[in-house]
Simulated assay, not measured.
Amino acid sequence: MFGVAAAATGCGTAAGGTGAQTKTLRYQGWAGDVSLPELAADLGYLGDVKLEWVGNTISGPQDIQSAATGQVDFGGAFNGAVVKLKGAGAPIKSVIGYYGADKDAYSGFFVLEDSPVKEPRDLLGKKVGMNTLGAHHEAMLGIYLKRNGLSAEDIKKVEPIVVPPVNTEQSLRQKQIEVGVLGGILRDKALEKGGVRKLFSDFDLLGPFTAGTYVFTEKFIKDNPDTVRIFVTGVAKAIEYSRTTPREQVIERKLAIINKRGRNEDPGALKHWKSTGVAENGGKILDKELQIWIDWLTDRGEIKPGQVKLTDLYTNEFNDLAKG
């Protein structure tokens, strides 16, 4: 998934040497959801920069790979995927955080109420269902086990397996897995039904943190610095709008956007939206939010020590709100 050659420059749509900068940004959306750039555009925060929807994605890693190869101009994914793609030689750079974990937006690792699993060592030999391997949830599981004193050999005895999120609660209740990762509407519905107990969450583990960032290629940034600044600062304003506006009004706005764009989507999940989870003002990126994934991927042997440097990974230069 991450085999992007360093030569893939993702030139985007810039006019380059002429000095003209693109004012149209191609991107992928998410079915049934309104992304922060889409919200920013609707609120008028992007000025004369326009968004051009080219289709939907179902995967953050796929989205940033499309940005790296120039199929779209920007993409977003969890920070571990960004580090991994950078390690594979992709010339990308993170410019703003866009989702994360807080008291309302978190992924919990749930067991049945009467489960014998009560502490980290109880997970040895147990199946943990999550949406994908080698990503955020597997990292959280590994960090949880390591912080609680389990050895590398012990950690290997815990079995993360792929379970589609919509099937996770049922798999847990039918005891096909001992632990299931649930977030958002799926978590809320499982808690409403009762009979499940939270073992830990990413928020419990790390506190409030930004988990994912939007990226452009380095060439796109170099050729279009003003456009990137408008985009990044506009998204930053949309983050603060989402943080400071009453939840019902944010949901109402997002529902109106979905209705206007006419993509034949089910907006049901939007009604359960609570927070972006972005930790810092305006989506400012912090060293620790990427360093944790550098460390985790290095421990797993997926990147070499020193292969990915923080200074090459991200910049807050284009985020006017992050400077305030």
Rank of each mutant, 00 (worst) to 15 (best):
I251Q: 02
L186G: 10
G87W: 10
V34Q: 06
I64S: 05
A139H: 15
S107A: 14
G80F: 01
R243F: 04
K126R: 13
L191F: 09
G70I: 03
Q170K: 15
A152V: 07
V162A: 12
A81H: 11
I64P: 00
A152P: 03
D104P: 02
P165I: 14
K156I: 08
D104E: 07
G29W: 00
Y106H: 13
G262W: 09
K323Y: 06
F209L: 12
R197V: 09
V111N: 04
D33W: 12
N224V: 09
R121K: 15
E240L: 03
V95T: 07
E289D: 13
A135I: 06
T217D: 04
G212W: 13
K198M: 11
D202E: 12
F203W: 11
G129D: 07
P116V: 10
Q291I: 04
Y106A: 04
F78W: 07
T168P: 00
G100S: 13
G195T: 11
K23A: 11
T311V: 03
V4E: 04
K222D: 03
V111M: 08
F216R: 02
T22F: 02
F78P: 00
G212P: 02
G212H: 07
G12H: 03
T18S: 14
K84I: 07
A68W: 00
A152L: 08
K175W: 09
V72S: 05
G108M: 11
A68Q: 02
S275R: 04
V82F: 09
G29Q: 01
A81F: 11
T57I: 00
N259V: 08
L191G: 01
D104G: 02
D223V: 08
I292D: 04
K146A: 15
E113T: 10
K284R: 15
K156E: 14
L124Y: 10
P37D: 00
W30Y: 05
R247V: 10
G268N: 15
L206C: 13
A6W: 07
K309E: 05
A236V: 10
T217E: 05
G97L: 09
A238W: 09
S275E: 09
K126Q: 13
H136G: 09
P305S: 09
A279C: 04
L51Y: 07
P120R: 11
G324N: 13
Y314L: 06
G183D: 12
L286D: 10
G17C: 10
W273K: 02
F216M: 04
P61A: 05
E265Q: 03
G195H: 13
G194T: 10
E289I: 01
V232L: 07
L313M: 00
G212D: 03
R243H: 09
E248H: 11
N319I: 06
I251F: 08
R263S: 11
E302H: 06
A139W: 15
D73N: 10
R173N: 15
W296I: 07
V166S: 09
Y144F: 15
D312Q: 00
N148W: 04
K309W: 00
D114R: 14
L270D: 12
Q28A: 01
P305Y: 01
T233M: 07
F78K: 09
K127M: 11
G44T: 08
L133F: 12
P116G: 06
Q176I: 09
N264V: 14
K50N: 04
F203Q: 12
H137I: 03
R263V: 08
L150M: 15
P246W: 14
I251M: 02
Y98D: 02
V128P: 01
K198N: 14
T233Q: 12
W30S: 02
P164W: 14
D154N: 08
P246H: 12
A211K: 13
